[in-house]
Design a protein around this nucleic acid. Sequence first.
DNA 1: AAAGAACCGTTGTACTATACAACCAAGATT
DNA 2: AATCTTGGTTGTATAGTACAACGGTTCTTT
Lengths: 181, 181
Amino acid sequence: MSDARPDATTEPPATPPPGARTTPADAPETAPPGTPREASVDVIQRELTAFARRARAAAARVHPEIPLVSYTLLAHIEERRGCRATDLAAHYLLDKSTVSRQLAGLEKLGLVERRPAPEDHRVQVLHPTEAGLAVLATAQANRLAAYQERLRDWSGEDLARFADYLLRYNAAGPEDLPASP
Amino acid sequence: MSDARPDATTEPPATPPPGARTTPADAPETAPPGTPREASVDVIQRELTAFARRARAAAARVHPEIPLVSYTLLAHIEERRGCRATDLAAHYLLDKSTVSRQLAGLEKLGLVERRPAPEDHRVQVLHPTEAGLAVLATAQANRLAAYQERLRDWSGEDLARFADYLLRYNAAGPEDLPASP
DNA sequence: AAAGAACCGTTGTACTATACAACCAAGATT
DNA sequence: AATCTTGGTTGTATAGTACAACGGTTCTTT
């Protein structure tokens, strides 16, 4: 309660927007049994958006150590031991230049290492350094812990299903992601 | 267009991860029935993160009309007819200055209107203009349509449950959101 | 009532993330 | 060889954001 925040902590509109909605969805706080598809989709849209929106704001707080979004890239590099910059760009829908600069930053911080590929002399194979792995490990641990905490009260079944839904949602590919600003 | 993203799903796993863990976008795994809590949480964490990351990238494509992230703010203003700038800042964990500038942009585009409050002369009550409402309606429609498309194959039950999970997840409040970098 | 604290919003400054375009270097095609 | 293609870097520009300092307001306290 640091500040006066009368309206809110949660995204779902306190008051169902009267009219002006394109859908009859009144954004129920908890989806009742007979929720029509449109309503559910609307809620999903809004909630995912809310998540994405807040995620950015919260990011800095979680690992201020890694000053960059490039934490993600580092994670990816680690995940598949050794990858090219282009892979990262493709995977995250980023421009080559962006990735290039991010990597430059990571390298300057001593978190990644680039090695020329023996075969193709154009590519550089990226590897996390020791420091990179360490940073990554703690960051990951922190984040996972935070999620564990947040999801503490959930039943195992719900967790599994939620995870499943998310996988399914994301599996559709990044192309047409209609998400939040 | 020589995009940097020919495909995000086809990138060759330069070195396939030895473990069971793959990247969501590459290998949509399905959470097996007996998934332990930790695994589920891990998946949830990763998938939500992935979503957040991609969301930003996709944002511009969806509504290029509204050049700003401020679409969100506009939506919020509309949602609760009339609100103050500080509310927005608090709600989205943004700095006052950021909100101020975003609003300036929206105003310059003729999408919002600020009126001094009769009572308190410090505050300005924000209202969407006609144009603002229109823009918002179409943007919302587009986005919803995109989601509908993406979720086309889902059963009504799954949609309802997914929506429910998201609500539940987000309801915990923005404070400790441990999300993606 | 005067002084001070608290609040709302703007402006100055700075930095990150990002895109697009132009470019260079190394392979691949013809 | 000449030309396309691909991987990466650099130049330039633009959002979005934060932090700090500030000028008005309103509320509290003396």
